[in-house]
């Protein structure tokens, strides 16, 4: 049963992501990626990481995909970017090499067989609860740092998507900047 689920979702995920990478239509790519993200969460459920699965769905399919969707509205997606492909040989060889090496890296500690669990899963406790216990005891400081980072990112996103950011002060001439200031003060006076 587990095997069937694994292979099914594996095939689906790979297919979805491949489509994301290959498709020339941004909208299709976005949709297929959102689907792929949901498929990934299935693996988390299979691995008894229920909490992570839920977070995956909410954050990726909910928040991140919504961000991409909004971002896409700014761009002229109909005017597709011309994708002149680079040499496929380079791409292929590099991918294969990287893949092999990543496998090696991951299996290396297993081959060494000297790993023991730093924070074993508490017995008789459900996964979300166990995650909560570990997160708020052992990983409290990283957790708080991550929270601050998210806050910073949020403010950054708001500021950068705001007005006036389409002008670069560093690339403007002195007179232009002076004119801009003048306009602003005039606006304030009229208000």
């Amino acid at each position: 049963m587990e095997a069937i689920a694994f292979y099914l979702f594996a095939v689906l995920t790979v297919a979805m992501f491949s489509y994301t990478v290959m498709s020339s239509q941004a909208l299709y790519a976005l949709s297929s990626m959102a689907a792929g993200m949901i498929m990934i969460s299935a693996f988390f459920f299979l691995l008894n990481a229920d909490f992570l699965g839920v977070v995956q769905i909410i954050v990726y399919t909910g928040a991140v995909m919504a961000l991409y969707a909004f971002g896409m509205m700014f761009f002229d997606t109909t005017r597709a970017v011309k994708e002149h492909n680079t040499s496929k040989v380079i791409v292929l060889t590099l991918s294969v090499l990287a893949t092999l090496l990543v496998i090696t890296i991951f299996t290396m500690p297993i081959a060494a067989e000297n790993i023991s669990a730093a924070f074993p899963e508490p017995a008789g406790v459900e996964n979300p609860k166990a995650v909560g216990i570990v997160l708020f005891t052992k990983y409290l400081v990283p957790f708080e740092v991550a929270a601050v980072m998210l806050l910073v990112a949020m403010i950054a996103g708001i500021v950068m998507a705001g007005k006036k950011m389409d002008r670069s002060l560093t690339k403007m001439k002195e007179e232009e900047i002076a004119m801009m200031h003048q306009e602003e003060t005039q606006k304030k006076v009229t208000l």
Binding site: L94, L97, A98, I105, T107, M108, I110
Partner: peptide, 27 residues
Amino acid sequence: VIGTVGLLVLAVLYVKRYDILALMQMV
């Protein structure tokens, strides 16, 4: 990417107790 690959190769080469046979069986 090429740099990453290079670093990975180095990491593999210099990890101790590197037993390629056991590794192949594992993979």
